[in-house]
Design a protein around this nucleic acid. Structure first.
Lengths: 353, 353
DNA sequence: TCATTTTTCGTGTACGTTAACGAATAAATT
DNA sequence: AATTTATTCGTTAACGTACACGAAAAATGA
C-alpha cells in the first residue's frame, strides 16, 4: 500500500522532505563533510523512513570512480595445471564486473619459490590497489604482505588455503579437515575391513604442509572416531621430480604393502604413473583434483576416487566478494567452504569444475 | 594502442564520425524506423569499426522500459518437493535482475491435473508478458500454450523437460538419455556380472512418460552397447499412492527377484519405504533427486545412488536466459544440459543443489 | 562593530542514452 | 506548380547521482 511509487524515491524527494537541496542530501549519503549535525540527523531519519535505495545505474553513470583489484595465485606450471581453474574463475568475474568500473590485474608466483611470491606481492603493494585476492601459500611471506595491506587499509581475501587469525575479508576454499575426513570415509567404503593405508604428502615447500597436515588430521580422526583399528602409515616426499618420487615410493613399498594409498593433493597422477609402471594393481588410490592427468588414470582404473572442490568457483567468488564488499557494501560470509565433490570413472564426464 | 580511450566511445562519437546527430545514431542502434538505408549503413559500419558497446547504465537510466517474465512450473506438493529447488533458482534470478526493471511473476500447476496447467497458461497469455519460462510437462497443453506465445511473439524457454521441435529460445535441463545411460553404467558398476534389473516408472499422467521413457532408452542402450546380456524388466505404476505402489511392487517381486531396481524419477523413496517395510535388503536401489526423503533412505543404506541435475540452477539459468536474450541481446545456447551429479552416502552432506 | 575565516549549504553541469517533438527534405498527389 | 503526405533527421529534455564552484550563514578574531 505505502510503496506504490516504489523505486522512485530519490535524492530529490528526500531533499524536498528535508527542506534542503539535493547537494546536501548527497553529502550525507556519501558521508562527506560540510553538513551540520542537525540537518544530517534530519536527513538520515528521512532516508531511513523512506528506505531509500540509491539508483545504482545513475550512481555508476555519474561516478568516474574506478576500482582496481589485484590477484596473486600460483602460475600454472608443468608440474600441475591446478591453478588454471581458479584463474579462469577470476577472469570470468573480472569480465562480469568490468562494466562497473573495476579493473582486475593478475599477478603470479612460483609455488616452489618464495622469492617470486615476495616480488609479486611487492608489485601489488606498490600498485595502489583497492582490493586483493591471494592464495596465501607461504605463511611468513603472506603475513608480511598482509600487514602491508592492513597498513594501507586494503581488504584482502584468501582462496584455496587459509591462514587463520588475520583480518581477511573472507576465506573461500575447502574445509581441509572435512576433506580429509571424507577421504577416510571413502577409504573405509573401499575396504570396510580395516586394512593398511598409506598417506602420501608430495610438496617441495614445507609451508604447504600446513595445508596437507590438516587433511591428514581429518583423515586420521575419522578412523579414531569410527573404527579405530585402521593401520595408517605416512610418507613425506619433498622433491616433486618423478625420479625422486619413484625412489621414495619404492623404498616405502618394499618395507610393507598397502591396501589403500591416499595422496593429499593433486600430485596423485604421479603415484598412479608409478603404479602402472610397476604393475601395482590391487591397491586402491585416492587423490585430489580434476586434472587431465588424473582423469586419465581414473579412466585407466589406476585411480579410484578424486576429490575436487570447485577451484574455478573459488576464483570467481573471491573477486566477487571484493566487489560485494567494496561496491555493494553487503556483508560477506567469513568462511565460504566449497562443496566436496567425489569424482569417479562413473561420473567424471559430467563434472564441471 | 588504438583502444586508449576504451569504453569512452558513445553515440556522440559515432554521430560525429558519421556527420549525423545522436538521434539518428540512436535510431539505428535501437533499429527504429526513420533512417535512410544509406546513412544506416554508414552508421552501422562505424559502430562495427569502433566495436561500440552501449553503456548499460546510461541505457537503463534513460529507459523507462519495464519487462515482465512469467514462470510456469509445478507447485510443490506433499507428493514431491522437487520443485522447491527450481523455484528457488527462479527467485534468485528474479532478485538479481529486478534492478534492471524486470518483474517476474510465478504461476503454478498441479502435476496430476492438466486443467490446472491450462488455467495458469491462460492467465499468462492474458497477462501480457514479455517472456515465459515453463516446465512443459503435458505435451498437448504445452503445445497449445506455445502456439499462443508464438502468436504474441513472446519468447519462451523450457526447463527440466523438453518438447523438441518447437522454437523455444532454449532448453535447460537434463540430457535424459545420458542420464539413463549413466544410471546403467552405475548399475553395471554395482553388479558387474549381468544380473536381473527392474526399471520402475511411477507417474500418474501418461504424458510424463515421454520424460521417463527417454531415460529408459538410455538405460537399455548402455547394456546393448556394452554387455548385451543384462536381463531387464520394467513396471509402470500409474497411481502415486503408497498403497497402490506397494501392491504393484509386491505383484512384480512375487513373480521374480531382482538384483537392481532403477526408479526413473524422484519417487524412489516410496520404493525404499517398501523395501524397508518388507525387509528387502539385498537389492541395489537407484533413483533421482536430492530430496529429504531420498536422503533419509540413502543414509539408511536402502538407496545406493541418487542422480541429481542441479534443479535450482535450472530455474536460475532459465530466467537468466530470457534476460540475456531480451535485454542483453546475447545469443543463447539452444540446449543447456545440466551436469549429472551422483550422490551417495559418502558425499551427500556436501552436495549443493 | 567590522572584517575575516570557517562552516554549511544551494546551484549547475556532467555522465551516456532514450524518446518525444518538430524541422527540413523528399516524394506523391492534385 | 502548388499542396499534401511521407520520410529522414536534429534538438532537447529527461533519467538519478556525483561533484565542483561559489553563495550565504555562522563563528571567530580584531
Amino acid at each position: 500500500m505505502e510503496k506504490k511509487n516504489s523505486g522512485t524515491v530519490g535524492v530529490k524527494e528526500i531533499a524536498r522532505l528535508a527542506n534542503v537541496s539535493i547537494g546536501t542530501v548527497d553529502r550525507v549519503l556519501n558521508n562527506r563533510v560540510g553538513v551540520s549535525e542537525k540537518t544530517k540527523a534530519k536527513i538520515l531519519k528521512i532516508i531511513k523512513e523512506l528506505d531509500y535505495q540509491p539508483n545504482i545505474f545513475a550512481r555508476r553513470l555519474a561516478s568516474k570512480k574506478k576500482l582496481r583489484f589485484a590477484t596473486l595465485v600460483p602460475q600454472v606450471s608443468e608440474e600441475t595445471t591446478y591453478w588454471e581453474a581458479p584463474l579462469q574463475g577470476i577472469k570470468q568475474a573480472a569480465n562480469e564486473i568490468k562494466d562497473f568500473g573495476i579493473e582486475v590485474v593478475s599477478y603470479f608466483f612460483d609455488q616452489n619459490n618464495k622469492e617470486s611470491f615476495k616480488t609479486s606481492a611487492a608489485k601489488i603493494v606498490a600498485g595502489g590497489f583497492d582490493g586483493v585476492l591471494m592464495a596465501p601459500m607461504f605463511d611468513e611471506e603472506s603475513t608480511v604482505f598482509i600487514e602491508e595491506c592492513n597498513l594501507q587499509k586494503i581488504p584482502f581475501v584468501f582462496i584455496n588455503s587459509d591462514i587463520p587469525g588475520h583480518n581477511n575479508l573472507c576465506y573461500i576454499g575447502p574445509n581441509l579437515y572435512q576433506s580429509g575426513y571424507l577421504s577416510a570415509h571413502i577409504v573405509n567404503y573401499l575396504s570396510p575391513a580395516s586394512k593398511k593405508t598409506l598417506i602420501v604428502n608430495i610438496s617441495k615447500e614445507i609451508d604447504l604442509h600446513h595445508h596437507l597436515l590438516r587433511k591428514e588430521e581429518g583423515f586420521r580422526n575419522y578412523f579414531e572416531e569410527n573404527n579405530g583399528i585402521n593401520d595408517i602409515s605416512k610418507i613425506d616426499i619433498q622433491q616433486t621430480s618423478y625420479a625422486h618420487i619413484q625412489q621414495k615410493l619404492s623404498e616405502q613399498l618394499s618395507k610393507s604393502s598397502y591396501d589403500v594409498v591416499f595422496v593429499t593433493n593433486s600430485r596423485v597422477s604421479t603415484v598412479a604413473k608409478y603404479f602402472e609402471e610397476h604393475q601395482i594393481k590391487d591397491v586402491k588410490l585416492i587423490g585430489y583434483d580434476f586434472l587431465e592427468d588424473n582423469i586419465l588414470h581414473l579412466k585407466n582404473r589406476t585411480i579410484d576416487f578424486l576429490i575436487c572442490q570447485k577451484p574455478q568457483e573459488q576464483g570467481y567468488r573471491g573477486v566477487m566478494s571484493l566487489y560485494d564488499h567494496l561496491v555493494l557494501h553487503t556483508s560477506i560470509e567469513k568462511e565460504q567452504f566449497m562443496p566436496i565433490d567425489i569424482i569417479t570413472r562413473e561420473n567424471y564426464q559430467y563434472y564441471s569444475n
